[in-house]
């Protein structure tokens, strides 16, 4: 308390000398610089990978940011193996199915949590949070055993199940926050207008929750797409191996050669679906969609 009182006279003097000294233009410049730093920090590794993927085998270790000699061999190579194409197909299929299922189930669960009062609601929310916090690595061995026992080891289902399990808490949390934002009176109005609860949900609540649903879909898709731990532990053949695992299994021309170029090319390819997915859904994430529903 005493220090706060003492420091008070000093604070405005400091603030005024700095704040008044900076014009609107200078402020903008500083923000631009800060943005640029953050952008570079995030993008340089990506650009580095991109650069590596275009380098020829003999220049790959030269340390130049811009490749001296350009080549598309690395890309051609990974598709020649065949293994990677199958893995890419597995990745897309598994991630999409998991995303759709997690979002559909999550939407319904989140709606119930946001709107209804039922016994055990707090427990349900708590348990779903617990699942999200559970270390995945500790589940790998039991899942391996169980899945082999029931015969879903090395299948799509064997990956979709754990993905949904871990994506659901995320989906439920994000979506219930969105549902709470939707005025309850809209639902009452729909009921009065003659809608069944399902009709009200489908034609009033879901369109309004769409931004939330798409945001959740993006997050869940990225989670499934990027997973390596479950994918490497619960698969063994190209039947269900995903792209992340396929990259790890790349081998060079001889056992002494590192397949750096191929890995870089595959990594670049792997980010493309995510960028497409985000760009596609970003257009639908329209902020303030609910404005105009109720006054205020």
């Amino acid at each position: 308390m005493a220090t706060a009182v003492e420091s008070r006279p000093a604070a405005p003097a400091k603030g005024s000398s700095k704040g008044a000294g900076m014009s609107e233009g200078q402020k903008k410049t500083w923000w631009a610089v800060a943005d640029l730093v953050v952008l570079l920090y995030a993008l340089v590794p990506v650009l580095w990978i991109l650069s590596l993927s275009f380098k020829t085998t003999d220049t790959i270790t030269d340390g130049n940011f811009f490749p001296r000699s350009w080549t598309l061999d690395n890309y051609a190579q990974i598709f020649q193996i065949g293994l990677f194409t199958a893995a890419l197909r597995n990745s897309i299929g598994i991630a999409l199915i998991s995303t759709v299922l997690a979002v559909v189930i999550g939407t319904m669960a989140a709606y119930a949590i946001a709107r209804l009062d039922f016994p055990g609601k707090k427990v349900l929310v708590g348990v779903s949070l617990l699942i999200a916090m559970f270390p995945q690595i500790s589940l790998v061995s039991p899942l391996f055993d169980i899945f082999r026992g029931i015969g879903i080891f090395d299948t799509w289902l064997g990956l979709i199940l754990p993905y949904i399990t871990f994506a659901l808490p995320l989906a439920i949390y994000t979506l219930s926050a969105f549902f709470r934002e939707i005025p309850w009176e809209l639902e009452k109005a729909a009921k009065m207008d003659g809608a069944t609860p399902l009709q009200a949900f489908r034609s009033v609540i879901v369109p309004l929750a769409a931004p939330g649903v798409f945001t959740t879909a993006i997050l869940v898709f990225i989670f499934c797409w990027n997973d390596f731990l479950f994918a490497i532990s619960l698969t063994s053949t190209s039947r269900s191996q995903t792209a992340t695992v396929a990259i790890a299994n790349f081998t060079g021309a001889s056992q002494f050669a590192e397949p750096t170029g191929s890995i870089a090319a595959a990594a670049v390819l792997l980010t493309i679906p995510i960028i497409v997915f985000v760009l596609f859904f970003q257009r639908r994430i329209v902020a303030g969609l609910t404005s105009g529903a109720v006054k205020g």
């Binding site: 005025p183 009176e185 009065m192 369109p207 969609l289 006054k295």
Partner: peptide, 28 residues
Amino acid sequence: APKDRDIAMVFQSYALYPHMTVRENMAF
């Protein structure tokens, strides 16, 4: 259920469906 009572209600907050046009709101 409310839908089977054949009555209409006007809410204090209006409760219009924001994703629908006026025409769609009234046609709902």
